[in-house]
């Protein structure tokens, strides 16, 4: 296809806050979209120079290779503790953590709960793909009932393996949580909503309102052994009834 672009205006390009390093994520993985939107908001708000991010251990361990802001890579589960450390000594900067479900809702559960309970003025981005992506598709605390993974080959048996944890609802109960929402990145409409949520979170952070927490229900085509399109479809049909997208806690003044 040949189209003249001379007479046209640029309406969408990769944000400058993303580096040119090609991402290592599997084709169609939601991590890439989530990174991009997060960086896009930082770009648009003009806060690049004042933002410090924390990457987890998980597939997004290399987030600092892509996000063109000052970053730290934390130990498995401890991103919110590291983010606490950063925010406490740099209270006027914007700080976010970016964590998977194994990181945030299994090994890092204590840090997650206490970070939110202290109402740390940070944004926590929580990628829930119901599986351990990086280590090859093992069961996560968020894996659905009956879900087959490499460590629940006969399906998750809730009687012995626990029920899929709704971390976001759990932390929404804490007074320190200011704004808590569940989003996704699988459609243009969902991406637009996520963008608004991220923006609202950074605005709240500027006003030192407390912890903002955004769960992104996402796919893991490799771990789920599906094509990207199938995985998004499966996510809508199976994840969404349990992890239903939408706001969970919205302060009056944000409504």
């Amino acid at each position: 296809m040949e189209t003249k672009i001379d007479s046209m205006e640029l309406v969408y390009a990769k944000p400058e806050t993303l580096t040119d390093t090609p991402m290592h994520y599997c084709p169609g993985c939601g991590h890439g979209v989530a990174h991009k939107i997060l960086m896009e908001v930082i770009d648009e708000m003009g806060i690049t120079e004042n933002t410090i991010g924390v990457a987890p251990v998980g597939c997004s361990v290399f987030a600092y290779m892509y996000m063109n802001v000052d970053m730290q890579e934390a130990a498995h589960g401890r991103a919110s503790a590291a983010a606490t450390g950063i925010k406490r000594v740099l209270p006027d900067k914007f700080v976010f953590s970016y964590q998977g479900d194994g990181d945030l809702a299994a090994i890092g559960t204590a840090e997650t709960i206490h970070t939110v309970n202290r109402g740390e003025n940070i944004l926590m981005v929580f990628i829930n793909n119901g599986i351990y992506g990086m280590t090859g598709g093992q069961m996560a605390p968020t894996s659905l009932a009956g879900m087959k993974t490499s460590t629940s080959p006969y399906g998750r048996d809730c009687a012995t393996m626990g029920t899929p944890i709704k971390m976001t609802e759990l932390i929404a109960n804490l007074p320190g949580a200011y704004y808590v929402t569940r989003q996704s990145v699988h459609t243009p409409a969902a991406v637009r909503k996520l963008k608004k949520a991220i923006k609202a979170s950074f605005e709240a952070q500027k006003q030192k309102k407390g912890t903002c927490f955004i769960e992104i229900v996402s796919n893991c085509p490799s771990g789920w052994k599906m094509t990207p399109l199938e995985s998004n479809d499966w996510m809508e049909k199976n994840m969404f009834p349990y992890y239903t997208p939408g706001d969970i806690k919205v302060p009056q003044e944000m409504k």
Binding site: T84, V89, E111
Partner: peptide, 17 residues
């Protein structure tokens, strides 16, 4: 902090800053 695990990772964050 809520634990020594959290403490040392806060040290990581704040020291890294």
């Amino acid at each position: 902090a809520e634990s020594e695990v959290a403490s040392i990772n806060m040290i990581y964050g704040a020291g890294g800053a």
